[in-house]
Design a binder for these strands. Structure first.
Lengths: 245, 245
DNA sequence: GTCTATAGTCGGATAGAC
DNA sequence: GTCTATCCGACTATAGAC
């Protein structure tokens, strides 16, 4: 239930115990269990993943799960925290860059659009292109559809920030109030254009009659989203965008 | 695994058995079990829903599930078929209307856009406004994220048709080839603008700081999607749309 | 067709040796 | 910290009375 049990996580990768034999050879049991959790929870969901399967996948003992995490749910929370850490590390920089551009009053419209493209490509990459994307996204999306006690980990630490960045970006491009309902919903709709390709990838692949999205597909998706934002910001409010600083 | 066991479903609502007592008073066990499946599978997912909970929710006996559906998975398939039937009945007419407009060479751009608005409002309604929307959508979305043997029921009978309609509509408005990858992906992106509000509704409500989407929100969402399609069809190809017939 | 009782399996968590 | 053995509850499915 709580998440106060995954504090001592970032340290002691090397000193795994009293007997100093082969401590660095294999990652700590704790880390391997989190890795197994990412894979198995992502593939089958929380309920359908058994502690026995997790322990086997991690090459760990069944009792290690209650010992390290207090139980299956504690492991799930640790997995959630790990996913947020990695995703923030991957998209954080481009998000920060986009925010900086938006807050720079001297930035021209083209600068903002360039930051938009960079950010969208980063998101396409983290969601659709990387090998761990599938597991990560499946867990995040499951929590969106059917929130559990782990929902706040994803929302407060990741989704709220991503949505906030979209709001700032769209506000800068359209001149709408960043706190308005209109802009809040437009930011969600924009994110939806990306998210659907992860969520409904099985349908998309069936429709495209292929077994994975290739680089051309990913480039096309990124372009479509950027085009849509540009089109929105033109039709929505031709004013505001006082270009050429 | 198979779905050849839900054939005799549409008949015999009244003749429930040898003893003719109270056959119409309460819906047949079969129908009540499907209703329970819609609610519980939608709330908790397939794995997390037990046959005991299903039987209790339906006011039926535990043994009725293997008897009527061959097992828990058979019930799940029957639930999937039921959901597709109801959703098709609700959005089918407006989809057919939109297709008819698209195929009418005399239709003006405004006619196509009017059909678009009608269809979008119907989809917003079925996904976000109706009481059964939550259960229906949760099951459909779960199947998108983590497909099971029931996936083809949703894809072949429902999603493929909805996506196909979007392709025809966008093709008519943009002049792009309906079979092109570009248009296929644009149709998905457009659907994503709607779907995200169902999928990430927990996040959206938290961000909006309210506990349900009211009519103003729904109207705004429908308008945003229609605006985006219009903006796309203008920027994407200012040609094609030979208005005023 | 519906019920009770039960079989057979698997789930998560724990105890205690090492 | 890690392992083995085990408890106990919950699960799905079935058998057989009615």
């Amino acid at each position: 239930m709580e998440q106060d049990m995954d504090e001592h996580m970032d340290k002691d990768m090397t000193a795994s115990g009293p007997r100093g034999a082969a401590p660095a050879a294999r990652a700590g049991t704790r880390e391997r269990l989190i890795g197994a959790g990412v894979r198995l929870f992502g593939l089958h969901g929380f309920e359908a993943t058994s502690t026995r399967a997790l322990a086997t996948e991690a090459g760990a003992n069944l009792g290690a799960i209650p010992y390290h995490f207090g139980g299956k749910e504690g492991l799930y929370h640790a997995v959630a925290g790990h996913i947020v850490d990695v995703m923030l590390a991957q998209v954080g920089p481009s998000m920060a860059g986009a925010l900086a551009v938006c807050q720079d009053p001297a930035a021209r419209r083209e600068d903002v659009l360039a930051a938009l493209r960079t950010t969208v490509r980063g998101m396409v990459r983290i969601m659709l292109a990387t090998p761990e994307a599938r597991s990560f996204s499946q867990i995040v999306l499951q929590e969106q559809i059917a929130p559990t006690s782990a929902f706040p980990i994803f929302y407060e630490r990741f989704l709220k920030r991503v949505h906030g960045m979209w709001c700032v970006l769209l506000a800068r491009l359209t001149g709408l109030d960043p706190e308005s309902t209109e802009l809040t919903l437009r930011a969600f709709a924009t994110m939806g254009q990306l998210v659907i390709f992860r969520m409904a990838m099985a349908s998309a692949l069936r429709r495209l009659d292929c077994d994975r999205l290739d680089d051309a597909h990913l480039e096309c998706i990124a372009r479509i989203v950027c085009d849509q934002v540009e089109a929105m910001t033109e039709s929505c409010s031709p004013v505001c965008t006082e270009a050429t600083s």
